[in-house]
């Protein structure tokens, strides 16, 4: 990294219009999550959730944009990911949230799976009104795993 980033990264909006954009969204989410102090597992969950939701925006919403917003609330640090499209909207949110329900040829785990990867999750939609999916995760204090009361520990991984 060439520059020292500010303590709290600024909100970022990224377009979602292609495969390459999905990759860019993943990279940005990873970068910001790392910057905010999310642990590796949480980073991975966030990036995965972002990937699912961004693909949703691309496939079902006909593209749109991703907003990555760092949050600070008292002692908590968090990250909000919003995915906004002007597509047809979701007719039945409860149905779309069901595991295995898919209209896009995927595994149908996009929305429901992403919800399980974050702390807060909301969908704003309606037929013809487009869709905004918002996911929030907070940095949890779960300590980084320290392995090994084992007799030997290979030093590097």
């Amino acid at each position: 990294m060439m520059e020292v980033l500010p303590r709290r990264p600024a909100p970022i909006a990224l377009p979602i219009g292609s495969d390459a954009d999905l990759a860019r969204v993943r990279q940005h989410v990873r970068l910001v999550a790392t910057e905010l102090g999310f642990g590796l597992v949480q980073q991975t969950k966030l990036v995965t959730a972002a990937s699912e939701l961004a693909r949703n925006t691309l496939v079902h919403g006909g593209g749109g944009q991703a907003e990555i917003t760092p949050l600070e609330e008292g002692h908590r640090t968090g990250l909000r990911l919003s995915f906004v499209d002007q597509g047809p909207g979701i007719r039945d949110v409860a149905l779309a949230m069901t595991d295995g329900y898919s209209t896009g040829g995927g595994l149908g785990l996009g929305l429901s799976g992403a919800e399980r990867l974050v702390h807060e999750f909301a969908i704003e939609t309606g037929p013809g009104r487009g869709t905004t999916v918002t996911a929030v995760a907070w940095v949890t204090g779960v300590p980084a795993p320290r392995s090994g009361a084992g007799p030997r520990r290979p030093g590097a991984r």
Binding site: P145, R153, P154
Partner: peptide, 11 residues
């Protein structure tokens, strides 16, 4: 879970 999985990799 995390400790165990890390140990699986380490060991």
């Amino acid at each position: 879970m995390e400790s165990l999985l890390e140990a699986i990799v380490d060991q």
